[in-house]
Nucleic acid binder design. Structure first.
Lengths: 382, 382
DNA sequence: TTGACAACCGAAACCGCTTTCGGTTAGCGT
DNA sequence: ACGCTAACCGAAAGCGGTTTCGGTTGTCAA
């Protein structure tokens, strides 16, 4: 159990050096693994530092070295929405990876009347961060535009429309929605509606594209009223479902941009007396825990958001470190697959021949091995 | 649109001073509002700083002043659980308040094999933080114990069993659950079960105490099997509901420790063919958005978690600033009330005389004015 | 004994800002 | 013209560490 130091007890390198009978320079060089310090001396110094609770002042180190080992993350401007679970998981993973590298995560919010780029600029100009992670990108994202023009290392979780000049890690959203459509078509569905998000957001755009291209490939007509954009939460899902239930050519399946939207849709269907997984099938995207708990369990394309945060953290530290010490390394540009998790919300259409009219009650199965990312790193600009 | 500075363009106080034809000392004193600098000069300096994109280096300022304007927040160790929405909201509010004060929020995770106190100690010893916010307290909380013994300013969102020697802001969980019980009893319920959390966590303990004391006050017997502890997520809620439905003296209402648990319970009840809001009433705690979207809407004790984060941020900055500049101010110890939000999940028992057997379909109403905190600050140790 | 070299030394400079302190100058009022 | 004072000046020191560089010492091998 560490005991917090009193202010008067603060160790300095001067005190530690005196304690060891070494010069301050030698202690510093020992702690920083200089090759001209003997291993025996290095061990001795490290042990004494541990015993006496000494840690170098980050502030002094920053000033002396000119290196800021802190990554900035600017929270999305608040639109009356809560932070979504996906983002929270990214943060958790990112914070963990940075902790392992002894880097810090600085989280900044956007006060009313300000914007994200402004917040970033303030962090940059006061020398508070040595890099950024950007998440939840728009197709045209001002944050990415700002950072591209700078020397500041950054990694994007997600992508923008143009994305070949910076490092990114993204889920293959388009493929995920192609796969989800393949699954529904494989079950016999032909009338498939889509509850999409804000198409200014790149992930929502890609998921929408996946839906459209798979519908075309399978020859499923997208009837007017089957495609809803701007569905951002459960309440919006509710309204969209109400409309779809009045459709003259009611769809037999719903593909939803996120699990939250899918869960909202499931509630609305249940309330309208529609049997989910029988009269209407539903697929979401995210893999939220609540998707497992509801009845029937939600079939969903899952993404490993915590692991995404971890990997993004690893990449940004690597990049920031490389930009301090040496030649530019190739940009990481990685696509991870989402995984189909089958539960009871998606089954063959109730009117399909040879149908078992009961929703599947088997436990969730994964259609692919869980979450082992297929890395597709590309060389980049150097 | 700010343009990020190139490294070679970094403004320093020396350059700014030269540009203005003033000494560096005068520029510094102007930016720091020294009374011996003319207002006209202060304006001139500020304007030039803005025009040239100069911001003082936080690193240099920290070293020179010995003040670290950064608040640390250590994420709970990960137990396979996602970050709960309440915590995410606190973080958002906290980050916003800190941004307004030009303070920073450093978020740290706990890597496997480490614990929260250890992470805190590292932050303290390397001089990375000037204070902490602690949330989700246990009744005996090692983090609070560590910080109490230190000079480090900190504010707790929540409380521990002993809590008179530090600053805290808490929701009156006990009263909230008394109020919720009052409401259920007022509707005619006498057989009320409780799905509680981990009683090591102080909020869960208090909510449990509220349930128990209100049940006693109303003369409602708590039958064996009515009180479940350790319900931490929707899946656990499902299992608990399954047991309660087998109870020889089935309860007519469920009081749940959180909305997530309540939503899980609602799903399980619906799956079992129990009409929620009619055969069984349900009340939660939190005010999650999803509670509004489901059918029936969840009656819940709501808390303003974003505002909690804001206020905690304000208190910790105030405290940290006071500890630098002057006499100790009285500790803030504030209790906020939760607000009853009435929706369709709680109605008179189906077998009560004069009952309308249909669940309420009116929009949510608040039984009290929304979220204006009744402050109950106490003087403390100085 | 001599030369080489590992391993440390001590001094100094520096990072970018803040703060102090004795001094100077300009403007104003008498 | 003189005295006062607001408002700045310039120099220096300092924060806590890092890094460089010429020097010293001890050990080992030839």
């Amino acid at each position: 159990m560490p005991r917090a130091p009193r202010r008067s007890e603060t160790m300095t390198i001067a005190r530690l050096a005196k304690h060891l009978g070494l010069s301050e320079g030698t202690v510093s060089r020992a702690l920083n693994n200089y090759p001209d310090i003997a291993a025996k001396t290095i061990d001795r110094v490290r042990k004494a530092a541990d015993d006496l609770g000494y840690r170098p002042s980050t502030t002094a180190r920053r000033l002396a070295r000119g290196v800021v080992e802190t990554i900035g993350f600017v929270l999305p401007a608040r639109d009356g929405h809560q932070i979504d679970p996906f983002l929270a998981e990214i943060l958790d993973g990112l914070a963990t990876e940075l902790a392992l590298s002894d880097w810090d995560l600085l989280v900044a919010a956007v006060p009313d009347g300000h914007d994200e780029v402004e917040v970033m600029d303030r962090l940059v100009r006061s020398g508070k961060v040595g890099g950024f992670v950007v998440a939840r990108t728009k197709r045209q994202d001002p944050r990415v535009d700002y950072l591209r023009k700078s020397d500041i290392p950054f990694v994007v979780q997600g992508r923008t429309e143009q994305c070949d000049d910076y490092a990114w890690l993204d889920i293959d959203n388009q493929k995920a929605f192609v796969d989800a459509m393949d699954h529904l078509v494989g079950l016999g569905h032909r009338k498939i509606a889509f509850l999409g998000g804000d198409p200014d957001l790149n992930y929502a755009w890609q998921r929408r594209e996946g839906y459209l291209s798979a519908a075309k490939a399978h020859g499923c007509a997208i009837r007017p009223g089957y495609l809803h954009d701007g569905i951002m939460d459960e309440m919006a899902a509710r309204a969209a479902v109400a409309e779809l239930l009045k459709h003259p050519d009611r769809p037999t399946a719903l593909l939803c941009v996120t699990d939250a939207v899918a869960i909202g849709a499931i509630h609305a269907l249940a309330h309208a007396g529609i049997s989910v997984g029988s009269e209407m099938s539903v697929i979401g995207f995210d893999g939220l825990p609540m998707g497992e708990a509801i009845h029937p369990g939600l079939t969903t394309m899952s993404q490993a958001s915590y692991q995404v945060g971890r990997e993004v953290g690893r990449i940004v530290v690597e990049q920031a470190t490389a930009s301090t010490t040496g030649p530019a390394s190739p940009l990481s540009q990685i696509l991870w697959d989402a995984t189909l998790t089958i539960r009871g919300s998606a089954n063959p259409p109730a009117s399909a021949p040879g149908t078992n009219a009961q929703p599947a009650s088997a436990p969730a199965t994964n259609a692919q091995p869980a979450s082992a990312p297929a890395t597709n790193a590309k060389g980049g600009i150097s």
